[in-house]
Lab assay of single mutants.
Amino acid sequence: SPEVQIAILTEQINNLNEHLRVHKKDHHSRRGLLKMVGKRRRLLAYLRNKDVARYREIVEKLG
């Protein structure tokens, strides 16, 4: 489901952010981070168009 995919991506994004705080010059990982953020944004847009209630619920849960 989109909610699960968004939750997994959010966790991976948070982990990668911590990694990049330590390894500032790791541009390869930064590119992966940007791809993940874009994918999460697309999934959220899809969910917002399909079911606003589910969209609001996941945004509330994940912050």
Rank of each mutant, 00 (worst) to 15 (best):
L44I: 04
Q12P: 01
E57D: 08
N14Q: 07
R42A: 11
N15T: 12
K24P: 15
S29M: 14
P2K: 05
K50Q: 14
R42Q: 11
L20N: 03
G32R: 15
V4A: 13
R54Q: 06
S1E: 09
R40Q: 03
S29G: 12
L62P: 02
N15I: 14
V52Y: 15
H19G: 03
L34I: 10
L44D: 00
I8T: 08
V59G: 02
E18H: 09
E3F: 05
H19Q: 06
E3M: 05
V37R: 06
E57Y: 05
L47W: 02
V4L: 11
L62V: 03
A7K: 07
E57V: 05
K39I: 14
V37I: 13
V52P: 15
R42D: 07
L62M: 09
R56A: 07
E57F: 04
L62T: 03
S1L: 07
M36D: 01
N15K: 15
Q12M: 15
V22Y: 10
E11F: 08
R56W: 14
E11V: 10
I6N: 00
V59K: 04
E18K: 10
G32M: 15
H23W: 06
D51C: 05
R21V: 04
K39S: 05
H27E: 10
R56L: 14
S1V: 06
L16G: 01
V4E: 13
I6P: 00
S1F: 15
R48P: 00
K35T: 08
E60S: 11
R40W: 05
G63R: 13
L33M: 07
D26P: 03
V59C: 11
S1G: 09
K61Y: 10
K35I: 12
S29V: 13
R30D: 05
I58H: 01
R48F: 13
G38I: 14
V52C: 12
L16E: 02
R48A: 08
P2Y: 14
I6W: 03
E60R: 11
K25G: 14
Q5T: 06
M36I: 08
V37T: 04
T10F: 04
L34V: 09
G63I: 15
A7G: 06
I8G: 03
H27M: 10
Y55L: 02
E3G: 04
E60P: 02
R54D: 04
I13P: 00
H27V: 08
H23R: 02
E57T: 04
N14I: 10
R31W: 06
Q12D: 03
Y55W: 15
G38S: 13
N49K: 12
H27T: 10
H27D: 08
L62Q: 03
L44Y: 02
I13R: 00
I58M: 07
R31V: 12
K39N: 05
H23S: 05
R54H: 06
R31Q: 11
R54A: 13
H27A: 11
K24D: 07
S1A: 08
A7W: 15
L33K: 02
L9Q: 02
Q5S: 06
A45T: 10
R41A: 14
I58T: 04
L9P: 00
K61D: 04
H27P: 08
E60T: 06
E3N: 03
I58S: 04
T10G: 01
H28T: 11
A7L: 15
V4M: 12
L44S: 00
E18A: 10
H19P: 01
L9T: 02
G38W: 14
H28M: 10
K61A: 11
Q12G: 05
I8E: 09
Y46A: 12
K25T: 12
E60D: 08
H23C: 09
G32Y: 15
R30Q: 06
N17D: 05
I58G: 00
H23Y: 07
K61S: 12
D26L: 03
H28P: 06
T10R: 01
A53H: 12
A45V: 10
K24M: 07
S1R: 08
N14L: 08
R42T: 07
R30G: 03
V52E: 15
Y55V: 02
K61H: 10
Y46E: 15
G63D: 07
G38R: 14
L44C: 06
V59M: 15
R30N: 05
S29R: 07
L16M: 09
R54E: 04
S1D: 12
P2N: 03
L33C: 08
N14V: 05
T10S: 06
M36N: 02
E57I: 06
D51I: 04
I13T: 00
L33P: 00
S29Y: 06
A45W: 13
E60V: 09
S1T: 09
S29H: 11
L20F: 05
P2W: 14
N17P: 01
E60Y: 06
V22W: 10
L44F: 03
N49R: 12
V4I: 11
Q12C: 12
V37S: 02
G63A: 13
K24W: 10
E57M: 06
I6C: 03
K25V: 05
T10H: 02
M36A: 14
V59D: 01
I13N: 00
N49H: 10
L16I: 07
V37K: 08
K24Q: 11
L16C: 07
K39C: 09
R41T: 07
L43D: 00
Q12R: 13
A45R: 08
L43P: 00
I13M: 02
E57R: 05
V4Y: 15
V4S: 09
L34C: 14
S29W: 05
M36H: 03
N49D: 10
V37N: 02
P2C: 15
I58D: 00
A53W: 05
G38L: 14
R31G: 07
L16K: 02
I6H: 01
V52S: 13
V59F: 05
R31F: 09
I8D: 06
S29Q: 05
L33N: 00
G38T: 12
L20H: 03
H28D: 13
K24A: 10
T10V: 07
V52A: 11
V52H: 10
K25W: 15
L16V: 04
I6M: 02
S1Q: 07
K35M: 11
K50H: 14
E3S: 04
R40E: 01
E11S: 08
E3I: 06
N14C: 09
D26M: 03
N17E: 11
D26C: 06
L47P: 00
A7F: 15
D26H: 09
D26F: 03
I8M: 12
L16D: 01
E18P: 01
E60G: 09
L44M: 05
A45D: 10
L34N: 07
E60K: 11
V37Q: 07
T10E: 03
R30W: 14
L62G: 02
E18G: 04
S29K: 08
R42L: 10
L9N: 01
K35V: 12
R48V: 04
L34G: 04
K50E: 13
